[in-house]
Design a protein around this nucleic acid. Structure first.
Lengths: 190, 190, 190, 190
DNA sequence: TATGAATGAGTCTTCATTCAT
DNA sequence: GATGAATGAAGACTCATTCAT
């Protein structure tokens, strides 16, 4: 995957930002990791912050793109919902370090950049309400404040980066199913 | 409560850590906020990190103490659950800045201190499972992986610091109720 | 004169800026000169540029203040003119290094600061025209473009920093007299 | 004249050195200006300093060559003097950027190179005294310290780069005439 | 001739902490 | 308790120059 130096640097940054945090990671650390001199790094990046921005932007974009595709599928809404949950889990856990950078370090961005990420995150929230709205319209989901419900669900799903262990006893799939069922029971009309 | 300088400094730190983040807040900033010289601050604190530690430790301790009291109450488990949710909400939103510092900045602590906070957080999770276990035992809650369920609920509840606006249209109580119902429907036996 | 550290630093900066130029002088150089650590310097200055600004501003202010006083004197205009020339010479040569910093290094200031110095310099030019105007009005000086004449005179006077040697055979006073006579012959009505 | 890349690069450097100053101009800036990569530039120049040297050397050489020619002319000395003034003005204002680089940036050269430029500048001064001497010998100019007089005149003439605006209301010719008359009145015997 | 990756020394500046007064 | 001078290590970033391709 790390076919060129740019990608190599991004991967190194993801690893280090996840492990030590953005502020505690020095440009020197990143340079060391890819075997370059500090100064040489600046052939590839324009600033440390820009590196963080690119990582977080790519991450949130992936989430958005994937959810948009799911929304457009022609399947029952409950299935769609389950797919959304599982897909979020897959993305989060399969790119765990990158997700951690998005969810934990984006705050370190400057105001402008943070705004951009924040807006993309908002979009993601809205996409989730689209699914919930669809369920309400079809009569399968309860008719409540869907934005609040989406925030609850997203909170659960994102919090995962804090405790999930890819090498633990529970697979991402199992957890996803557990969460999916918990939420579905919570929102479906009886 | 803010009767002495120590408390004044802690409050200033909470405000600044919440607003700018721990790393972006300098000792100078804190000194300015309380009207002292940088050097004078060290009569009250032993280090910047220690200040962060005290804040986060107090915060998580509050959460634990409160939940422990709720657990010991002699009320129906569903009510207990609702109380736990609402109480978490109250604590989080009424000490929003402090909670933000706990949830967002604790990662900046050194390994040892982080471990201590992490353990307290773990304890909080276990307390939640105690309630869920009680519901399972009484036959009111479904018998599933309660640790996972607790993680899901806590994720929802903690995520709140990212989007809740004390001056918004929805009160903390309303949100708490919405969340409480959502989760209860999700976990109760039908 | 260097009674406190601030002044000591300013004097060191003047010496170094004059000798090596602003850009070629590092903050380290200045710190070394006053026997401080690089970082300690920032207790006294806010930036390297600010140091340059203060030096140049003080220099041009001195020129302005002195000329203003001369203008207000109640003496014949020719005498006033001679005094202005001699006084400029005295100030320039007695604070030669500082004058060099003003005349040669002010260009290195950022746009805003440069503008301020530029405006003060402009004021100095106008003060000179005041004297010339007075001579024209009294009928002693030729009536030509006084701004141009002032520019010519100031050019001569300022250029001095490029060649004057305080230890040379010609004293500042002698040179001043030579210049003064040259210009007076050039501007007086015959 | 700008027939080849070498000249193109020199012109770009002149423009940039004049606008931003030698130190504030990076090799990258120059490369950008001529549409080359930084590395490619080094096929044409041996160093940034060398570029500055070539520019300043050409500039001062032009001044010297032109003045030498004027000296050799068989015309009355007063006319010669006026020609020298006007010619200096023409050269300066018609190659304003280059002149600025000579007069303002030559100081950034290394010691050896600076010495060379300094010597050429000295030569220029001497050429001026030749004219003045001629006037003294012919009895037309006053017999004073001609080196001092030349320094005064050159100061006026060179200072021009600091205030002359080619697009202003006064043409170079008009200014030259004003200066020429001012000086002539100052030096001629009455 | 042109590239662009790489260097490595150097830039200014920040900052948590200490300590003598 | 309070000051403020001093530290010294670390921070991100720049830049003229080199060189293999």
């Amino acid at each position: 995957m790390a076919s060129n130096k740019n990608e190599e640097i991004a991967q190194a940054a993801i690893r280090l930002f996840e492990k030590k945090g953005y502020h505690a990671t020095s440009v020197q650390d990143i340079a060391d990791e890819v075997g370059l001199q500090k100064g040489s790094l600046y052939h590839y990046i324009s600033s440390k912050e820009d590196l963080l921005m690119k990582i977080t932007y790519q991450s949130i974009s992936n989430f958005n793109k994937t959810l948009e595709k799911i929304i457009e599928l022609d399947v029952p809404v409950k299935e769609k919902f389950a797919m959304a949950v599982e897909s979020h889990f897959q993305m989060l856990t399969q790119n765990l370090q990158m997700s951690v950078v998005l969810l934990r370090e984006a705050f370190s961005l400057g105001e402008e950049q943070r705004k951009i990420i924040h807006d993309s995150t908002d979009l993601y929230l809205q996409l989730w309400t689209v699914i919930l709205d669809e369920g309400v319209k079809s009569g399968e989901f309860q008719d409540t404040n869907n934005r609040l419900t989406a925030l609850a669900i997203l909170g659960s799903l994102n919090w995962v980066y804090r405790w999930f262990n890819p090498n633990g006893t529970l697979s991402a799939k199992e957890v996803a199913q557990h969460f999916s069922e918990l939420f579905l029971r919570g929102i479906e009309k009886r």
